[in-house]
Design a protein around this nucleic acid. Structure first.
Length: 201
DNA sequence: ACACGGATACTA
DNA sequence: AGTATCCGTGTC
């Protein structure tokens, strides 16, 4: 399991370094191929910046705590709290390359194409069975839900590229989305996001 | 291109 | 109270 000190850093560093790690959720798992960083500093898109209740959340909980909320009244989105001193924030998980429990994910998602199982923040939570009950869960204890660093040969670690974040209007210019280069399991391909937050093409 | 849909923050 | 907004997905 990735230890708590990993999350005691700024959101951009955490979001970037989580690419290539494995997200484990009970019997299911996948390699993280897409994340976004949301910061308490200079980021109007961040809940921690905009919402007093979420700022309080960050104050009273440990780094490594899950933040799960309902978006657009439809989809649960999974974040992890990080606390890098002045720069606290969240990392949003946007896409996984499924590795374990694929049958179960297909069952929950109702689709059979592996590339469609976890290629979006709402799809990912549906595939893993994440919902509001997982809010506040400590992801740094036990082996049932959390993160694993995959053994990679030197020089073979996942190549990470940065891009604009998806679907936001405020602070849309920050290149705070991170992707595993050339992964076919991401939600939207690299370079396909415009500053407006809408997709191009 | 558009429907679906609930929580939050803001205005009164 | 009502309104605007929001880190999306599936189907048209």
């Amino acid at each position: 399991m990735i230890e708590r000190s990993f999350f005691e850093r700024d959101p951009l560093t955490c979001a970037r370094e989580l690419i290539g790690c494995e997200l484990v959720w009970l019997g299911c798992a996948g390699v993280i191929v897409e994340t976004e960083a949301y910061s308490a500093v200079d980021d109007e898109a961040s809940h921690i910046f905009m919402r007093p209740s979420i700022r309080k959340f960050a104050e009273i909980h440990d780094p490594g705590t899950a933040y799960v909320y309902l978006n657009y009244g439809v989809h649960w989105l999974l974040n992890v709290l990080v606390k890098g001193g002045r720069e606290d924030g969240f990392v949003l998980f946007r896409a996984l390359e499924p590795t374990k429990g694929i049958e179960k994910m297909m069952e929950r998602r109702g689709v059979t194409k592996i590339a469609h199982l976890c290629s979006g923040p709402g799809k990912l939570t549906q595939a893993l069975g994440v919902d509001g009950r997982d809010n506040l869960r400590d992801l740094c204890v036990g082996g049932r839900r959390g993160f694993r660093q995959l053994a990679t040969e030197p020089g073979r670690a996942a190549e990470v590229v940065a891009d604009l974040r998806v679907g936001i209007t405020r602070s849309a210019h920050h290149p705070w989305r991170f992707l595993a280069r050339d992964s076919s399991f991401v939600s939207v391909g690299h370079g396909k996001v415009r500053a407006s937050g809408k997709r191009s093409g």
